[in-house]
Amino acid sequence: MNKTLKGWKDIPIAGVCWKPATQYLTGDWKTFKPIHDAEKCTKCLLCPMICPDSAIKWNQTNEEIEFDYDFCKGCGICANECPADAIKMVREGGE
């Protein structure tokens, strides 16, 4: 059992969340992760809009999209929908 998780006496009742969802990382659910090909990307910004987990962000500094792997569940919708075929899904740890 994970020692970092709290016991039943130490958590609020009824599933009340004691921390915001941004601190509850769900990225470790994924089997496949999306990889971005900057050469092919047309920067249409469709992928940040369609990501169901808001896990694709536009980085204003380097003007590229980037994945937040702490929250990406690896559903692959971005890779499927990308008009430029600039996202591919690879097995986690398989690279």
Binding site: P12, I13, V16, C17, W18, K19, P20, A21
Partner: peptide, 8 residues
């Protein structure tokens, strides 16, 4: 009762 909420 008082509970700890997500706003800390």
């Amino acid at each position: 009762p008082l509970v700890m909420g997500h706003e800390g």
